[in-house]
Each structure stands twice: as structure tokens, then as C-alpha cells.
């Protein structure tokens, strides 16, 4: 039974994929000029965190799959964040007539 349920993929494989996805998301978050792309990078980072949660839930917490419940909550918050973020972006675009992040400098010191 244990050989049947033992996963052929190591846990570190999933962690590596999640780390790469997270780092690409961070890089895009810092370097994107387009505000929509910033929101997409945030979604990438949230997905990386979700992969981590699911991997830990499957490998270390197989009976009480609390990681999956957490992932569902993260998906909920991500959906709400995307809706509000894109609404803010639309409002910003209406006021500034641009989506260039370098020109959103009203709060710069």
C-alpha cells in the first residue's frame, strides 16, 4: 500500500517550480511598465504560493488536507484582489490617460 501511494515525484520538485514561478512574479512586479502586467505578476506569485500549499498538503498532511483549504481561501482572496485591482486600474486610467507605471508618481517622495 505504501508503494502504491508513494509519489514518484519528490516534494522538492514542486517546491522548485513554485520558487521559480514566485521569482519570475517578483521580477515582473518590479520591472513591468504596464499596470495590467503588474496585476498579472501578482497572480503568478499567488499561484506559486498555492503550489507550495498544495504540495505540503499532499506530502506532509495527507489525512487532514488543510493546505487545500488554505489554497481555496487564497484563490478567493486572489479573485477579490483581481476585481478591485482592475477597477482601481480603470479609474486610474480614466484620470491619467495612461497605464505607464512610471507616470503614476503622485505619491512619490
Amino acid at each position: 500500500m505504501s508503494t502504491d501511494l508513494a509519489s514518484p515525484i519528490p516534494l522538492e520538485g514542486f517546491l522548485t517550480v513554485a520558487a521559480m514561478l514566485f521569482c519570475v512574479g517578483v521580477w515582473g512586479l518590479i520591472n513591468s511598465r504596464n499596470a495590467v502586467r503588474v496585476l498579472m505578476s501578482i497572480e503568478l506569485m499567488l499561484n506559486a504560493v498555492n503550489i507550495n500549499l498544495m504540495a505540503f498538503s499532499n506530502y506532509l498532511d495527507g489525512q487532514l488536507i488543510r493546505g487545500q483549504v488554505f489554497a481555496i481561501f487564497v484563490i478567493t482572496v486572489a479573485a477579490a484582489e483581481a476585481a478591485v485591482g482592475l477597477a482601481i486600474l480603470l479609474s486610474l486610467y480614466r484620470n491619467r490617460e495612461t497605464v505607464d507605471m512610471e507616470r503614476f508618481n503622485l505619491l512619490r517622495w
Binding site: Q68, A79, L89
Partner: peptide, 27 residues
């Protein structure tokens, strides 16, 4: 995790991605 995979497809691909596409076309 089949349930979370289905939720991922429904929420992310079906809602968030479409929302982002709409935002791109609006701006």
C-alpha cells in the same frame, strides 16, 4: 487535489483571466 484543480480552472481561467483580458481591451 481534483477539487482545487477544478476551482483553479473555474476561478482563474474562467474569471480572473477573462477579467484581465477585458481590462486590457478597455485600457
Amino acid at each position: 487535489a481534483s477539487f482545487v484543480a477544478a476551482a483553479q480552472i473555474l476561478v482563474y481561467v474562467g474569471a480572473v483571466n477573462v477579467l484581465i483580458l477585458f481590462a486590457i481591451m478597455l485600457v
